[in-house]
Computed example of a mutant assay.
Amino acid sequence: MGSSSGTVQHLVVLGIILLSTNAFGVHARKLRIHKLEKLSQEEEYLHSRLRIAEFEENVLKVSGELKLHHHLDNDWMIEFKVSRSVDGDGNYERIMLFEVQLCDFMKTYYKDFLYERLKEYSNAPHPNTCPLPKEHYHLEDYPLDVRVLKKLMTPGHYRIKSKLKNEDSVILAYMAEVEVD
């Protein structure tokens, strides 16, 4: 994503599917994103926007921006919750809950899995940048190849929720609903 806490969060919403389904070995044929919804956003802290469009078979184009109005440090937490339902009937079972402090995320997961791929499509901050400065971060036409995701995920419906929070205050939250068949 554009790449800062929120923008990184957006990309990780998609990337977390990969991390949460490493144990699955079923080869899926189709992956559909049914919904990508911003659940909350505190304008005092930031403004975010995210677009995902199918570009060609197995490739999604991801674009977005994040305008940070405050510096964000390790007092901020990123949370990801992945749930799965066989038929999408509303009975989702949590398969993963992941929480990490922002700066720790930048130095580990962001550095290891995202930064090198993002930097040519964005003004993504370097992994050692923390606190994240007030900035207008952007991501433009990042080609997300979903073939690996399709191979690793078992058929079913997935609900991925991501949050950026400080103590009990959520300043940004997104939810994605994905189907694999």
Results as ranks from 00 to 15, higher is better:
Asp73Met: 00
Asp89His: 13
Thr108Phe: 03
Lys61Met: 05
Ser83Lys: 15
His27Asn: 13
Glu57His: 10
Leu39Val: 12
Lys81Met: 07
His70Asn: 09
Tyr45Val: 10
Asn74Tyr: 05
Arg51Glu: 12
Met96Lys: 06
Lys30Trp: 04
Glu56Asn: 05
Glu116Cys: 07
Arg159Gln: 13
Glu177Asn: 12
Tyr142Ser: 03
Val62Phe: 09
Leu139Arg: 00
Val59Ser: 02
Tyr121Asp: 04
Leu31Cys: 11
Cys130Asp: 10
Leu72Gln: 00
Leu144His: 15
Leu102Phe: 01
Val59Gln: 05
Glu177Leu: 08
Phe24Trp: 12
Phe55Cys: 07
Glu54Gln: 10
Cys130Ile: 07
Glu140Asn: 07
Leu149Glu: 03
Gly6Asp: 05
Glu54Trp: 01
Leu132Gln: 10
Lys35Cys: 06
Leu31Met: 14
Tyr115Lys: 01
Thr154Met: 04
Ala173Val: 14
Glu79Pro: 00
Arg29His: 11
Lys111Asn: 12
Leu102His: 12
Tyr110Leu: 01
Leu114Met: 06
Ile17Cys: 11
Lys61Thr: 06
Glu79Gly: 04
Val178Met: 09
Gly88Trp: 08
Ile17Val: 14
Gln41Phe: 01
Val148Ile: 14
Val59Ile: 12
His10Ser: 08
Pro125Lys: 02
Ser48Glu: 08
Ser5Lys: 01
Glu57Phe: 03
Asn166His: 13
Ile33Arg: 01
Arg32Asp: 14
Lys150Arg: 14
Asn123Glu: 05
His126Phe: 06
Glu65Tyr: 00
Asp87Ala: 07
Leu152Tyr: 05
Leu97Cys: 04
Leu19His: 09
Met175Ser: 15
His136Val: 13
Asp181Arg: 12
Lys81Gly: 00
Asn22Cys: 04
Tyr110Val: 00
Leu11Gln: 09
Thr21Trp: 02
Val62Ala: 07
Asp181Asn: 11
Glu44Gln: 13
Gly88Pro: 09
Leu11Met: 13
Leu19Val: 00
Ala53Glu: 05
Glu43Asn: 06
Val62Cys: 08
Thr21Gly: 06
Tyr142Phe: 15
Glu44Gly: 10
Tyr142Gly: 06
Asn58Pro: 01
Asp168Tyr: 08
Pro143Asn: 00
Leu36Gly: 12
Leu46Cys: 07
Pro127Arg: 01
Val146Tyr: 00
Met175Pro: 03
Val146Asn: 02
Gly25Lys: 11
Val82Leu: 05
Glu57Asp: 12
His126Ser: 11
Leu139Tyr: 01
Tyr137Val: 01
Ile52Trp: 14
Leu19Ile: 02
Pro155Met: 12
Val59Thr: 11
Glu57Lys: 13
Glu43Arg: 11
His71Ala: 15
Glu56Lys: 10
His157Gln: 12
Arg117Lys: 15
His138Met: 02
Glu44Ala: 14
Ser4Phe: 00
Ser48Tyr: 01
Asp89Glu: 15
His157Leu: 05
